[in-house]
Design a protein around this nucleic acid. Structure first.
Lengths: 146, 146
DNA sequence: TTACGTGCAAATAATTTGCAGTCCC
DNA sequence: GGGACTGCAAATTATTTGCACGTAA
């Protein structure tokens, strides 16, 4: 779970969200709170800008696509989200910012978390001179069994 | 090295290239041979369409950007190239189609092969029902040491 | 010859940006 | 009130496509 990014929760998720936004230096505006609610209320998720935009429309959160993009990037910079690298044109954002890896379902273009501990990278290469390892991403590509 | 895709080499790289193209069902046209030359003559490489386009211009290989894209995809489908998934908007093509993984240098947006054997994935997750593992990609993200 | 390739320019798709107007603190 | 935020539309960037023309077999 992505709980690492959500310390000190109280009883009220709404207040937690607003407080968390302030903590990371973002004003809890209507759209940020609305999007945060969509993103973080349902457990770990993987969204694209377009998908979140549709959800916001359904949920009557008034927000433009441009603001969706802005917000996703601000949340990412604040450590509330993480960008996931898969191929395909779209960018995926993951509400789970903890250390974990992904399945990528080819054809469907869907991302799924790999349950913790099911992937282990045994040997890591040494980083070249002057470089350090920022992160290790493992993507296990799945296709329908023929 | 990506030699798996290049069986039976003779003394003449040009002939090898033309023959290889025919083998995979692609007519050895001027632009395909020219691009193949740029791609495969210098060992393992990671290129984007734009980069290859510039190289072609320098090397006086007359080719349009649209044809670069077509050719890269045809080569990929033929197994001469492999698409690599990193984030960032661009698509990278790798002349090494063997089993290996990558460093991705943040900021510079450059891909580098990780020498074989320096990364090992110890435990693989079981694939969900009806799915099988098509491929496992490991990307080690590097940043300048602070 | 003739199907396969290529170039060009226009079309898409995802994302970003500039700026005028709006809203939180 | 004032600076941060948002929306809209136009701009960018990467890539794809349609179609007339060129070229390898």
């Amino acid at each position: 779970m992505g709980s690492r990014a959500w310390p000190e929760q109280s009883g009220c998720p709404f207040h937690d969200l607003r407080r968390r936004l302030r903590q990371v230096g973002l004003r809890p505006t209507r759209q940020r709170v609305g999007l945060g609610w969509l993103l973080f209320a349902k457990g770990d998720r993987h969204v694209t800008a377009e998908l979140l935009f549709e959800e916001a429309a359904k949920a009557r959160v008034p927000v433009s696509l441009a603001t969706i993009y802005n917000t996703l990037h601000q949340f990412t910079q604040a450590g509330l989200l993480r960008e996931v690298a898969v191929d395909g044109a779209k960018t995926y954002f993951d509400t789970n910012v903890g250390n974990h890896h992904h399945f990528f379902i080819e054809g469907e273009n869907v991302l799924v978390d790999i349950p913790d501990g099911q992937v282990a990278v045994a040997t890591l290469p040494r980083a070249p001179d002057g470089m350090e390892i920022a992160r290790v991403d493992v993507v296990v590509r799945l296709r329908p069994r023929r």
